[in-house]
């Protein structure tokens, strides 16, 4: 079975480590905050200028001056700090964020990522995504493995305008956890009940498959 959105978030959360500063993109990445493992401390960075993002506010706590990068009302966690946008991107560009999780339309074997524009159809802008992929060393892309029509999103070459070049090393799809190195996809794990053959069929770029591909554990 393909992973649900919640399972994708749960699997990403397993990559969190104690003391990590983490930037979570909009959509599935945001859900990761719900699955932070017991016993570890993680500080969430929101690129509009908040380090230490807390949960959503109660009705009484709502503050129009306190939002996250998705423009949602939020609260501040204990020990939070606020700062301006230049400072926020100094953290990001300067490589101070330990893990970045974001979505994408396409990823290719050379670590290129396309996530911000579909020419003629969807032109909303890159927001902070280009800075995030250029600045972070440790990035996990979460996405569906293929379109509804079975067209692979893991390609030999991205077809859409790029968000970043050669910067992605890990991709978690609803079918597989994949590492990118030396110009190839490497299959690390598969979703429970998903066959290696199915993953191969839906991966357009070159995929290296080891003899034993473990199932993800939750």
């Amino acid at each position: 079975m393909a992973l649900t959105r919640e399972q994708l978030a749960q699997r990403v959360a397993q990559e969190l480590q104690d003391g990590y500063y983490v930037n979570l993109g909009i959509g599935i990445p945001t859900l990761v905050a719900n699955y932070i493992p017991e016993g570890i401390e993680v500080m969430l960075q929101s690129e509009n200028g908040l380090l230490g993002m807390g949960q959503f506010p109660t009705e009484d706590e709502i503050d129009a001056d306190l939002i996250n990068a998705g423009k949602q009302t939020v609260t501040m966690a204990t020990g939070a700090s606020v700062f301006d946008s230049a400072e926020s991107f100094a953290m990001i560009r300067g490589g101070h964020v330990d893990l970045t999780v974001l979505g994408a339309f396409e990823v290719d074997v050379n670590g290129n990522i396309a996530s911000y524009m579909i020419p003629g159809k969807l032109i909303k802008g890159m927001g902070g995504a280009m800075d995030l992929v250029a600045g972070a060393d440790n990035i996990i892309v979460t996405m569906t493995h293929a379109s509804k029509h079975g067209v692979s999103k893991l390609l030999s070459n991205c077809t859409l305008p790029l968000t970043g070049k050669g910067c992605i090393k890990k991709v978690l799809t609803d079918l597989a956890f994949i590492e990118i190195k030396e110009g190839k996809f490497h299959l690390l794990e598969r979703a429970p009940g998903v066959s290696v053959d199915e993953i191969i069929k839906l991966t357009e770029g070159e995929l290296v498959v080891p003899n034993n591909v473990p199932e993800m554990k939750f």
Binding site: E47, S85, A86, I123, M126, G128, M130
Partner: peptide
């Protein structure tokens, strides 16, 4: 429209 990455935009102003 000139789409500009958010961090680049902040730094351009700075």
């Amino acid at each position: 429209v000139e789409l500009t990455p958010q961090g680049t935009l902040a730094e351009k102003m700075r």
